[in-house]
Structure formats: structure tokens, C-alpha cells
Design a binder for these strands. Structure first.
Lengths: 342, 342
DNA sequence: CGATTAGGCTTAATCGATTAAGTCGAAAAT
DNA sequence: ATTTTCGACTTAATCGATTAAGCCTAATCG
């Protein structure tokens, strides 16, 4: 039972032709040189069906020098934001005949470096990287880039290559203007990022918006925490337990905002009457939270599409000048923000 | 600039040895036969470092006949439940030296079949399958199984192979007992599954619990909907808009329950005072919803671990009798369920 | 002192495709 | 009646590893 998987040679034998012929039939395109008669073609096709032959992608890739595989490195499977980016990448990649090889760094440096190494060994054609530790992984990525490996960095520009970043500044300022306009004077920030570099533009916009409004950066209103919902929950508990709690909270992403909303509810605070909460990303869930979350939509799927587009473009034109795409986010006002209490 | 990637042969040339020697050094294990002097070893290692050589996984896999890759097929990236299963698989797989090749079927039949085909072409060593369309994909999967391809089916047993399933019946009945004990007489069911077969054990337990309590299955309290949060939201709106709405809702998974909670809030209903809501899975989020969700914990990570364990075991013992693992879930009571109103 | 043995490599076949460069017979051109 | 051309394939090198089997040389054994 269960012989080995059939190969080109098996099909060739069955059809009474050479492996070359089978290959030409399978791939359709004979490069204009070789012609296969319709009769032979049918015989080969028949054999393929009979044996249920499927080409070996490894062999094909080895010989062809291209794996038709785009690697994508994301920090964490728990944040829907990343899935949405992956979806965008997948959409474009598929259209262009590429498949995706997905790796999660699980927010651990050694896992990130292992993952980069593994992708590289599998000879992916290009890498779309959302590293959790851009500083520490820079060298590895740069080594890949130096080998003419197309890399697209998403969300940061730690190496000199194609990039897709979100232009958070303007919309963070718009969000701050929204909150300030609602009368909030104590606006806190739950800043839970894997690496400080990753949230830097949101942070800067927060600081400068406060400055322009003549308000100080009150470090007692800022909590630098981890990246899980639980971290957001704990951070909010700490911030809200203070004698002078914030009346509004920016949360560096929607996932953490879920924890923040629960912490608020547990302290008996009604959102937005007692506390306004705003997130970033606009993950799918955000509109279904209780209350629906005001947020800055990153257009994750579009980011993914752009990243894939850049990667595929570069695969066809290695010497093109480096490209930088900025995807502009959008302020989405929902029910979680409202006038300052009192 | 940027020459081609270095191969074994390049390292061999640099070190002045044969490719065989380099291979032996790289892999450490010489099968007890071949001995390499420490001096040569060092020279080769030096060359590897100098060229930054990384073995080509495709070539290795082609020759070795094993890709050290476990494929995993999940329905949908949007449900955290699946990610948790993947995490469990990854944990065990990594321990055993396997990597994961993840494919999403995106809930479309043709994508599912494409994905199975692609995994098969990449010559994964084993497949862990959570198909969205078990009936329709059965034939494809069976064809793989017939080739002695280790397959582990998770959540259903549509083909005769190793399986991991969740034993939902008992805990669904426990959940129903909980609700009935709280005085609920109109218990609805938001039944949003990709394929009816996938939720069948929950459905049966629901029906038989009602029967045992002497209650009819009221189809006006049941909504068979899609699998997104929005579907859950819409289903709940429909159910709650009726003249005789349910006082409690089972929701086939926690993701849909998010939408249900919002629908309830929008109708001005307080959970659990006016409506009790219970989900299944206990995704990470469930404890952070507002209110925290009563649910049946599936132990997703454990399911993933078990699936990986079965796959790896079978890779080492093809002729072992088929194994069936049942992971027992656990009722988790939180704040979303309470006494029936009135 | 000739025959093993052990150490330390190398040679070359192999995995399953792709593809440039033939081959061979028949029809068309000269 | 040759020579070309063309249609319809085949041959064999190649991609980058792995690994069984072989080949020296020097040391050890009987």
C-alpha cells in the first residue's frame, strides 16, 4: 500500500515519454521552442490524473532558483492588527502567484532571530518584516538585504530598504485635538509596545500636542507596559487608582484598550461619561466593544497590500531606488470618547 | 555586489576540502563512520562564518526526503481560538525540530482546496487539519492519507485518521444546567458555524438538555448565522427584536458572543440582568469583555499540543493504530450569566 | 615483515524537477 | 536528388544538499 509519491519520472514511464515531455506539458509554456502534439499531451495528462501526480515544490524551486514564497514576520499572533496586515499581504501575493510563509516572533528576541534564520534557509524570495526588536535584529536583516534579498520593513525604517509606515503623527494630533476640545486636561497614555521605537511617532505627537495646548507631560498619567490585554488592564488599574486619575486615556493599540475598558468598568467608571478611551489600529473588534472604541484606523489591510506590492515590484526590479510608502490613517470617532467629566 | 548565496561547494573550496566534509561538519553527526579532524573542522567552521553560509532547506529536504515541516490548516485568521491552537502546535512542533507551515482557508471552499494542494506540493511531513468544509474536502484529505501522509483532524473525524476533538457534550449540558438552574426558560442559540457538522455536538447537547428539562426546541430562539462578529451581532439583533425574546443565549463561540454583547447593549439590555450570554472556547479576550464572558473553555493550546503530539508520534510509527484524543473542556462561569429576569 | 586496521578524507550517486541543446524522420525547398 | 526545415520529441546537465562506498597513509598486530 501507499507507494512513494509519484514523480515526473513515474508519469513519464506511464505515458511512454521522457520526463522533459511531462515537464513541458505540466508547465504549459515550452518557451516557444518545444512542441508537444495534442495526442501526447492528452496521454501525459491522463497519466497525471491516474497517478494523482503533484509536482514537488522543493525540487521545482531548487532548480528554478525561486521559491515563489514570500516570508512574513510578525511580532505576535494575539493582536488582530497583524492578521489584518497579513490578509492584505496574502491578497496581493496570491494574485501574483506567491504563497506566504508566516512566522511569529512571539515577542522573544531569540525566537525572532530563529525565525529570520529559518525563513532565510527556506529561501523565501522576499521578506516582509514587522520585527519586534528592530534594533537587535537589524544586523541579521541587513545581512539579508546585502545579499540582494528583497526586504520590506513595515512600521519602522531601521534598515535602508523599502518601507511601509503609518503616518500616525497627524491623526494622533487630531485625536488629541478631539480630546482637548472635549475639555480633557488630564490625558494619559497607556504605552505598551514591544520596543519603544515602535510607538515613537504616536508618543511624539502626544507630547507635542500637550505642549501646544500648554499642558505638561505628566508622567503619573503615563504607563509603559507590556503588549497583552492583561498588561493594558493592569496599566489602567494603576492609572485609575491614583488620587488624581486621568479623565482620558490614549492607548497605544486597540488590543490593550480592551483591557483598559474592563479596568474602567471594574472601577465603576462609565465610558465615556467618567473616562474617555481611545485606541489605535481600528482592529475589527473595535467597533464591537462595549462601548465601541474611538480609534485611529491604520488601514492594516492596505498596509499589507502595499508591503506586498513593494516586495513584488522589487523582485522584478532589483535596482529600483528604495521606496517609502506612508499609509495615512484615519480618525474614527465612536462612543468611547466624550466630554470631560465635571 | 551581492553575489549569489554561498553553497556547500563555496565553503568547501574556501576550506580546501570536499563538499562531503563540509556537510559532515555542518551536521555534526557522521553516522559513526566518517571522522573529521578537529583541525579541518575548525577550518570549515571558519569558512562557514566567513561566507555566512546557511544551508538550503529545499535541497536538504529534497535529499533527505523529509521537510521537517508540519502543515496546519485553519479556517480563519479572525478567530483567536485557532491561533491558540496554532500556538500549542508550534510549541510541540518546535520542541521536536519541526517548523510550521500555516494556511488559512479564509472560509472559502476553493481556497481550502488550494491550500491543501499547496501544502501537499511543499511536501510537508504531516498535516494538522481544521477544515472549514470537512465534507467537501474529505476526498482530498483522504487521498493524502492514502499516500501514508500523516494527518491529524482536529474538531471532527470526517476521515479515518488520528483525531483530536473537544468533548463538548458534557460541558454544554453543564452550561445548560447552569442556565436552567438560574431560572431561564427561553434559552436561545446563536449557531454560527462554517459547516453544520462542526458544531453538531454542542447542538445535540442543547437539544437534549432542553428535552430533559421538558422544554421544546423553539426555532424562533435559534439563529443559524455566519462566523464573523458582525454575523453574531446581527443574529442577536434579530433574536432580541422578537416579541418574545430569549432570556439567555448560547453562542457557538466567543467571537460571535462579542457581537451578541454589543447587540444587547444597543437594545438597552443589561447583561446579565436582562439577558444572560454564554460562549464557547474561552478565547483570551473572553475574560476582558464587558461583562466578562461565561464560557466553556476548550483548552485550545492543549488541543494544539495534542494534535502535534499525535502527528509527531505517527511520523515515527506509521503503522500504529489510529488514535483519538478527546480534550475535555471546562465550564468557566463569569459575569455574563445570571438569574432569569422577572 | 606482510597484513589488518583505523583515521581522515574524497568520489559519485541521488533526491525531483527544469531546460538548453541535441536527434530523428518526414515534408518542403532548391 | 540533395539540402533545409520543421515537428515532436529525448538527452543530459543542473540546482544544493546527503551519504554509502571507496581510497590513501600511517600505525598496529600476529
Amino acid at each position: 500500500m501507499s507507494a512513494k509519491r509519484p514523480t515526473l519520472a513515474d508519469v513519464a514511464r506511464l505515458a511512454g515519454v521522457s520526463t522533459a515531455t511531462v515537464s513541458y506539458v505540466v508547465n504549459g509554456q515550452t518557451h516557444g521552442k518545444v512542441i508537444i502534439s495534442e495526442e501526447t499531451r492528452q496521454r501525459v495528462l491522463e497519466g497525471i490524473k491516474r497517478l494523482d501526480y503533484q509536482p514537488d515544490a522543493r525540487a521545482k524551486s531548487l532548480r528554478a532558483g525561486s521559491s515563489q514564497l514570500i516570508g512574513i514576520l510578525i511580532p505576535d499572533m494575539h493582536n488582530p492588527h497583524y492578521w489584518e496586515i497579513v490578509e492584505g499581504v496574502e491578497e496581493k501575493a496570491h494574485q501574483a502567484g506567491y504563497e506566504l510563509l508566516l512566522s511569529c516572533t512571539s515577542l522573544a528576541l531569540h525566537r525572532e532571530q530563529q525565525a529570520i534564520d529559518a525563513l532565510s534557509r527556506r529561501r523565501i524570495d522576499a521578506l516582509i518584516a514587522l520585527p519586534s526588536f528592530p534594533e537587535q535584529s537589524r544586523e541579521l536583516l541587513q545581512a539579508m538585504a546585502a545579499r540582494n534579498y528583497p526586504i520590506v520593513m513595515v512600521g519602522n525604517d531601521f534598515i535602508a530598504t523599502d518601507t511601509v509606515v503609518t503616518g500616525y503623527e497627524a491623526q494622533t494630533r487630531a485625536l488629541m485635538a478631539h480630546l482637548l476640545g472635549l475639555g480633557h486636561l488630564r490625558i494619559g497614555f497607556v504605552f505598551g509596545v514591544g520596543s519603544p521605537a515602535l510607538g515613537v511617532n504616536r508618543w511624539h505627537a502626544y507630547v507635542s500636542s500637550l505642549a501646544e495646548a500648554g499642558l505638561p507631560v505628566d508622567e503619573t498619567l503615563v504607563d509603559r507596559c507590556g503588549v497583552t490585554i492583561e498588561d493594558g488592564y493592569q496599566a489602567a488599574r494603576r492609572l485609575l487608582a491614583q488620587p488624581q486619575p486621568p479623565t482620558a486615556l490614549l492607548v497605544v493599540n486597540d488590543l490593550l484598550a480592551i483591557g483598559v475598558l474592563l479596568a474602567a468598568a471594574e472601577q465603576g467608571l462609565t465610558v465615556p461619561d467618567d473616562l474617555s478611551v481611545a485606541g489605535f489600529d481600528d482592529i475589527n473588534l473595535a467597533a464591537y466593544l462595549n462601548p465601541p472604541l474611538t480609534t485611529v484606523r491604520a488601514h492594516a489591510k492596505e498596509i499589507g497590500r502595499e508591503a506586498a506590492r513593494l516586495a513584488i515590484t522589487r523582485l522584478g526590479a532589483r535596482t529600483l531606488p528604495v521606496q517609502h510608502v506612508v499609509v495615512q490613517p484615519q480618525l474614527v470617532l465612536r462612543a468611547s470618547t466624550g466630554p470631560a467629566p465635571g
